[in-house]
């Protein structure tokens, strides 16, 4: 079994890895938080972030961002959406989410959207429902649930998603107090994070 990490360690490394991967600190903060929240729900957020950072366009500011938040279906110029950029935008406009929701085309490492969907549920005080490829998960206002469908989403490299307010809202997963990231993902994040450190003293 891999070594356990504190959630603070996970968030700190994920944040620095995202910055090292080319995201501004502003989005790196969001990435770190999202990874932490996934780990609390026993989803390996480190593996998801490592997959995102391995995407050839992950570091490019605009090419993975939704073009216009007023669209009913969000898409990017490159055809792939970054879950951090899309997720923060979703969280930002939680109060203005259309009743029939929004679609997102080609989300890379799509499980990283989940923490932002949970933010929306908390902000709206109303469950939100996420669907993809015939699977549906409804997230309650108290945090991310645990479901086999989510485990499958965590193994999905890229998919379209649809998010809309409402739904039954699954109860939250009992919170994990430690993270168990896959060693390869942890190593990948360490390598990316090392690019944020100035030359050492030793």
């Amino acid at each position: 079994m891999s070594e356990t990490r504190s959630l603070a360690e996970v968030e700190d490394l994920a944040r620095r890895a995202a910055r090292g991967g080319g995201l501004p600190w502003d989005l790196a903060d969001e990435a770190g938080r999202a990874v932490r929240l996934l780990c609390i729900a026993r989803i390996d957020g480190c593996a998801a972030l490592a997959a995102l950072l391995a995407h050839p366009r992950a570091h490019q500011d605009k090419s993975l961002a939704p073009m216009d938040l007023r669209d009913r279906v969000w898409s990017s110029r490159s055809g792939a959406l970054c879950p951090i950029r899309s997720g923060t935008a979703l969280s930002d406009i939680a109060g203005d989410l259309p009743p029939d929701g929004v679609g997102l085309l080609g989300v890379v490492a799509p499980v990283l959207i989940l923490p932002f969907a949970a933010d929306m549920a908390r902000a709206l005080q109303l469950p939100v429902t996420l669907s993809w490829r015939g699977a549906v998960v409804s997230i309650g206002t108290e945090g991310l649930p645990r479901a086999l469908r989510i485990d499958r989403l965590a193994r999905t490299r890229q998919t379209g998603l649809h998010l809309h307010p409402g739904g039954p809202g699954l109860p939250p997963a009992p919170p994990e107090t430690r993270a168990r990231p896959a060693p390869a993902a942890w190593a990948a994040l360490l390598a990316s994070a090392s690019r944020t450190s100035s030359p050492g003293s030793r």
Partner: peptide, 15 residues
């Protein structure tokens, strides 16, 4: 304008 639209173009001003 809602600031979310600016932050989409300029995530570097989010913090």
């Amino acid at each position: 304008l809602a600031v979310a639209h600016v932050l989409l173009d300029h995530p570097e001003h989010r913090r």
